[in-house]
Design a protein around this nucleic acid. Structure first.
Lengths: 334, 334
DNA sequence: CTGAAAGCGCTTACAG
DNA sequence: CTGAAAGCGCTTACAG
């Protein structure tokens, strides 16, 4: 393996000079620059990034910590983040916490040891002491999907409450009053905000909330499946359902099929998140679509900004991206 | 920030001793060990992984290079790989090449600079000189999804040809002879192998191959959509179609909907890859399911094995995982 | 069992 | 504009 020193010898200059032309830092005469470049070429030299990171104390590496990358929402977020990272010369490590605070803590510790320059984090619980400590220790973090106000960190989320309020009102406007709601893990802010949107819409319409109609699918397909089934063990199932994310919607659709209930005849349905296949169903789903890719991209850009320009005023850095309500054919008036 | 030296001072021992107890290497008396551990605790010391990597010349970091992580196949592969990596204390960087050889080359160069310990690679083209050079330079690589025999690298793929042959024969057995085939990018081995399976089945049944029925969807949803439409501009469209991957199947389903053709009445359909939603369609799709998660997991384990035990005999390391044919309701006899 | 010291391969003040 | 040298924070022969 050829080292900086080898190139220096080959070109008859000091390692400092090589370093300067390779990094475009400091002044180097054209004559030397040419000789250096030629030597680098001749020896097919590849700098050792670890040594460079050591000397510069930066790794050009970021991390993305999410519950599960196979959740299509986080997959798209990951792609957006990686694109932004790559454009700026950064690499991205990804970590799956499975919504386990312990796993999150473990990953964060490793990432700190690795001295990643920053991390994009979708927190997995309410307990955020360990995060606070890391931030105090200088770790740069941008929150995604779930804000945690007390952390006062930059974040990129969407208008969860407004979105679900719109969706719920849409159903109310079509005569529904027994509207089921499938929540995610209420430990995370986005789940709570979506529930709040549902409750706000009911309150606004003067509809009494029925606890039996609010079920938790834990943001997973399996959970959505189970919660969906439980809704149909009710003496009086809902005439419409709002699901808090794509995974639960898939699970719910499986449950509906098993119960022999069809959308929209037996039940109207609106999903948070849009997926390609939602349009392929016999009756395409009405959804609230998040800009998934953009969430990842913006969050990564924000993190990069924090790294180069320092943390922005907190007011300016709590980004809320807009969602889009897309009416298709899964709701009917009653 | 506290350094090894600080801990050493605090405990009144040398840095060497701290290093030894932290790494569990070398012998250290219980007395000292205790003092060291206490000091580490007191100072809340986190070792600097970059310095450690420098000294040990290993980064405990791997990379996963795929065309696009949002392709559900690669998403699952990524999850499998990350799980395996995490279990062994490794981190995983992910890279999206968009099937561009240039991007692949760029990523590989960066990964080499970063001194990742190994990479899981789904090659994006036929040109593999740059890969050969990296291997010669000592880079540890395990191929996934697409083997490249001339590279003679360990690999984890599936039995593409056999799987498609089975699927095609299934249609032939049901009386189909005008069977359309949607291929992926034929630059990659898996696409070619799947096409070979289709051709073998036709040949075996004595059915003449009709070039017009073989269209390319480039492994993408958009490509599948376009290719699907083109099939219905034919004077005599096929009575059945085999699609080479999940993305193209989604695109094809969109095309069929646009053309007003329904599965299985107007056309029988078999997809390579299974997705949760395939079972939710009005007529659940018959598929050839790959063990996606397992491909990633096994590949990563194989890579880890290469790192610790050295490269195994090539014969043993060209893994071909079995696929599963799942008959559902998207094919009818004619 | 323990420590002093060299070494990992770069970058960057500091001189000149 | 260029180089000698210190420094980044660990690990690991080498002595003892």
């Amino acid at each position: 393996l050829t080292l900086l020193k080898d190139v220096a010898d080959h070109a008859g200059v000091s390692t400092a000079t090589i370093s300067r032309v390779l990094n475009g830092t400091g002044f180097v005469s054209d004559a030397l620059r040419e000789r250096v470049l030629a030597a680098v070429e001749d020896l097919n030299y590849t700098p050792n990034g670890v040594a460079r990171s050591m000397a510069q104390s930066r790794t050009l590496t970021l991390a993305l910590v999410v519950p599960d990358i196979t959740n299509p929402f986080f997959t798209a977020v990951a792609r957006g983040a990686e694109d932004a990272a790559q454009e700026s010369g950064y690499s991205l490590i990804f970590c799956n916490t499975d919504q386990s605070p312990e796993k999150e803590q473990l990953y964060l510790r490793v990432l700190r040891e690795k001295r990643v320059d920053g991390v994009l984090l979708a927190v997995s619980g309410r307990e955020v002491h360990h995060i606070q400590r890391l931030v105090a220790a200088g770790m740069k973090i941008v929150l995604i999907d779930r804000d945690v106000p007390e952390l006062n960190l930059p974040s990129v989320c969407v208008d969860n409450q407004g979105a679900v309020e719109t969706a719920t009102r849409y159903l109310i406007d079509r005569g529904h009053s027994r509207i089921g709601f499938m929540t995610g893990n209420l430990e995370v802010a986005s789940a709570q905000e979506r529930l709040d949107g549902y409750l706000a819409a009911l309150a606004h319409a003067g509809i009494a909330r029925d606890p039996a109609l609010i079920v938790s699918g834990n943001f997973t397909q399996h959970g959505g499946h189970q919660a969906g089934l439980s809704l149909y063990r009710l003496p009086a199932p809902p005439t419409a359902i709002v699901s808090s994310n794509n995974e639960m919607t898939t699970g719910l659709l499986i449950a509906l099929r098993e119960c022999g209930r069809s959308v929209p005849y037996d039940v109207s349905l609106i999903s948070f998140d849009d997926l390609p296949y939602f349009s392929l169903l016999e009756h395409p789903l009405t959804v609230v679509a998040q800009p998934m890719y953009e969430v990842g991209r913006r969050a990564c850009q924000l993190l990069l900004h924090v790294l180069t320009e320092g943390t922005p005023a907190s007011v300016a850095s709590a980004v809320r991206l807009p969602v889009e309500f897309i009416a298709r054919e899964s709701c009917r008036s009653i």
